[in-house]
Design a protein around this nucleic acid. Structure first.
Lengths: 324, 324
DNA sequence: CTGAAAGCGCTTACAG
DNA sequence: CTGAAAGCGCTTACAG
């Protein structure tokens, strides 16, 4: 069986209380005792049981992360940064892939509550569910406005949409088409769309937005778009995977990029940048978002509910490649 | 404060023992009592504390996953599948990004032990460390042989290397160059290399293997390769990211693919396939690997240490695109 | 069918 | 500087 604190105490010739004190560096302990305890711990390969410790302290140092899917480059990188920063701060991460399904999100949330996580970071399109279950559980939402009581951290989607559209206009595009996800989902991408449409109107151009179903095979939709918009000379895709599909469709049709058609994407993940270095895109500061989200969450964990910033939007950056 | 089992008991007018029995569906409880208990739990929004339960049962249903980096498409997808399957089987996943650093792996492993995980799935290049700390902790390695006592699950790397090389030869390539990671790392990619070299020799061709440092900026190395190997008419890259770098370098130099040069990668992740659908590659069965790894791990968790398969190699598949 | 008691492995007032 | 006792929130023999 695994050794426990009593085993250590017996070997060191002290009480379990003393061992605990050594473990926690708490109160006065003579150097000699300390050493004996350390030696005993090493001798029997003792590691404290964090379950027991957490049970007593009512603090687990566990954070739950709910994302749609760690396969997606954006979420994969988000998970990486969040986990790394958590570890740096002494927290551990329970990973949950919700596939954007409400039923899964609910189950995960209940699981996290049962496991006494100190807080939750969530990327979810389903409003309300977090609020409902919450009951004092600190939550921070990433990039999605969830409810009045939940802080959001994201990037400046309106600015991103504006930059993308203006870049295309500045390069002389007249007929710019925007591709976005379904409008019903209250995603942050809606702000990108809004910015696109505002800027287009400002410039006396008619906005044309195509909606593609979520995580569908984009090719089919993109192909239809090409058929229906033969005059398009610029495409602003609301994420890089859609932009990649556009690039592929253009290649298939022998459309010269960027001469006949300019394409800009959104997200600018490391993975996509390394696979498609030519793609012009709007880069989100994933690491910064992660940092901010954790910072706010840990404030809430420490009971500091008062001055939590309700909404934090970090700046985006244009990465200009050869597709524009 | 959070309600506990005593609060539920008081409201339902029964003992904590009975509440626990209802919770665990254990022993005989009258329907009436059951109902009263359920109602009480709902009334005060009670969720059992899994910490306490785990402490008693000496079973957490927690699995640790150590991967280099969830940003990488291969590991991101691996994490997704492993987490999904774990959830399906009632397990939860603690995510650890080791960046392939031995010191981090060691710290993570200790953290996992302290948190009483039931088992660990690890992708690591650093042999030995797991073995050292292990002390009865069930571990399964993915794609990397770690030690005699740790089962490995992976794909058939030799077959993959063979298929890749034969495909290029079959298409008429005479001068095939292979790009791989550093040989010192005992990665499974070494088997891909071995297969490449064996097949080349069999066909009376001279194998030429380039080693690129891990996670470096590949472009520079690839560029040198192009300079040094002007006659190369086929390149077999040991992963898709390297293959993508080759594609980009070829584009930069105006080299016609596949006519002047044919390129095949390795991994075949969803992400890379969706971004570079034209890339020919050897696809690893990530979901199947995940399933097998968990299956074996859970066997070990259940104390079934006897007939654990030492090595499991799942079949790979050629995905033929337009780069060959 | 139900309850009181002991214990999982810790930590922390309290006392000395 | 150190220890005995109580308790974190559960579960499970044991007894009735």
């Amino acid at each position: 069986m695994k050794p426990n604190i009593h085993d250590v105490a017996k070997i060191a010739g002290v009480s379990p209380t003393t061992v605990s004190r050594v473990l926690n560096n708490r109160g006065y302990i003579s150097e000699k005792t300390k050493e004996r305890v350390y030696k005993a711990m090493e001798e029997i390969n003792y590691f404290p049981n964090d379950l027991a410790r957490s049970l007593f302290r009512k603090r687990t140092n566990l954070i739950g992360l709910i994302i749609p899917n760690s396969s997606n480059p954006f979420f994969g990188e988000l998970a990486f940064h969040i986990e790394s920063i958590c570890t740096l701060k002494g927290y551990k991460l329970l990973l949950c892939n919700s596939l954007n399904r409400k039923d899964k999100e609910e189950k995960y949330l209940e699981m996290l509550i049962r496991n006494q996580v100190d807080g939750v970071i969530a990327v979810t399109f389903n409003r309300g569910i977090l609020d409902y279950h919450k009951q004092n559980l600190p939550i921070v939402a990433i990039d999605h406005y969830l409810s009045n009581h939940i802080p959001v951290v994201g990037s400046d989607n309106y600015a991103g949409g504006k930059k993308a559209t203006e870049l295309l206009l500045g390069k002389g595009c007249k007929h710019i088409v925007h591709i976005n996800g379904p409008l019903e989902l209250e995603t942050p991408a809606n702000l990108r769309r809004k910015a696109y449409e505002d800027v287009m109107k400002e410039h006396g151009r008619k906005p044309v937005t195509y909606e593609v179903p979520f995580h569908q095979n984009y090719q089919e939709y993109i192909s239809r778009l090409f058929d229906e918009q033969p005059n398009a000379d610029g495409i602003f895709a609301s994420d890089d995977l859609i932009a990649a599909a556009v690039l592929n469709q253009a290649k298939k049709r022998g459309i010269d990029i960027p001469n006949r058609l300019k394409v800009i994407g959104y997200d600018g993940t490391e993975t996509v940048q390394s696979l498609l270095p030519d793609l012009t895109t709007i880069q989100q500061p994933i690491e910064l978002i992660s940092k901010k989200a954790i910072e706010i969450l840990l404030k809430a964990v420490d009971g500091d509910f008062n001055d939590l910033p309700r909404e934090t939007y970090l700046p985006v950056q244009v990465l200009e490649g050869k597709t524009t």
